[in-house]
Design a binder for these strands. Sequence first.
DNA 1: TCCGCCTTGTATCAAATGTTACAAACGACA
DNA 2: TGTCGTTTGTAACATTTGATACAAGGCGGA
Lengths: 224, 224
Amino acid sequence: MIDFEILSKSPVFTGLNPVQLAGLFKDLPCQVRRLDKNALVVSAGEECSSLIIVLSGSVKGEMTDYTGKTIKIEDIPAPRPLAAAFLFGKNNYFPVTVITNTPVELLHIPKIEFLKLLQKDRHILTNYLNSISSRTQFLSQRIRFLSFRTIRQKIAHYILDLAGNKLSSVELPLSQEDLAEFFGVTRPALARSLGELGQEGIIEVNRRTIRILDKQRMNDLLRG
Amino acid sequence: MIDFEILSKSPVFTGLNPVQLAGLFKDLPCQVRRLDKNALVVSAGEECSSLIIVLSGSVKGEMTDYTGKTIKIEDIPAPRPLAAAFLFGKNNYFPVTVITNTPVELLHIPKIEFLKLLQKDRHILTNYLNSISSRTQFLSQRIRFLSFRTIRQKIAHYILDLAGNKLSSVELPLSQEDLAEFFGVTRPALARSLGELGQEGIIEVNRRTIRILDKQRMNDLLRG
DNA sequence: TCCGCCTTGTATCAAATGTTACAAACGACA
DNA sequence: TGTCGTTTGTAACATTTGATACAAGGCGGA
């Protein structure tokens, strides 16, 4: 049986209590699959024709590059869904190969049935729309960053965004390591640029705390 | 009144004929707005609380950088929707400022009403889901490209993708100029890298035609 | 055929970043 | 307090790319 307590904590089904969920799933032809550790869930390129939700355990997405080497992309623990953004759209194929990290229970909801759910329940509809929209928004943001030419520009954009109209002092929410990865650059290169901006008197860097000293020149950085 | 003939050609409403649309819109509290040329439609940062569809004419999205300079991002002609991916999600604010190119008619459907439409009609629901999902998929693809460090890697990935399992000869669908822009690099840099790969005997370049001579070394390029 | 335009090939120099390595500062914990 | 592991600061050198300029090749129209 499906554990509706867990399901109600899944991003797609939040806002519904287990009783309501049980009602919605009463006559729904969906399927729970149990797999051992290190089992193959789906291969990259397979058509994505069901919404798959991890009910217990955890799986990982892996990509195979052209050389056959596999790289881990991300972990997906319960109770998250798999590849929600690839259930619809022109290329509705799994972009990654999915392998189990632990023994898992997976809930498969066929696309058609999921569509019915979306039409039946306003919560599920908005949850799902919010979820894939947020992903689009995140990716758009990410592309903006990757499009800046220099690290100085990325830093300026990031800090100005973080500061908003508020104080001139900002606390970085990420370690330099993670920030560097987010920017798509190496960690020493990021530290160097931060150091340079500090020496030029534009900002003052103290580990994770950054004070904006010259907002005008910060803006100037962005025009290249 | 709304021209349902045009609306039926909009990505969100394809698959429905004008009569069906008229039925759906019968008691729908939506609004048609007429604007002159060069009028402001929405400012960047405004909350996105209605789905806006261009019924006639054309608008453009512009971004203002921190210096006040505006850059045109894209044109949106009738009958396309505006910022469909920003109606839902955590950051449902317009990412760009929208200005009219010509006199236009704009259809505003409040978010709540649009939700009702999605629940009422299966076509609209799948159209909309496909539309924003496709965008996510496009952006994911784009990020993969921007994440490659060197131009050689981008070229290798691009050409291997283009060639698939087929012949060893490939015709570039874009000019070098456009390809360079897609890669986010300058045109001479792209030409240089192509030339180098040619000199190394990995590929053979003849203007837009490219022959893969050494598939093994092409693959090697991708592991860095 | 000749001319002009657009695309592609090539060169040079400067700027930015990657790579690698190591030191310093901080935090948690015994 | 001292030690260990993690995060951050810095340095030197090699690569890669951007900027800019110009030449060469293809293509269509006069």
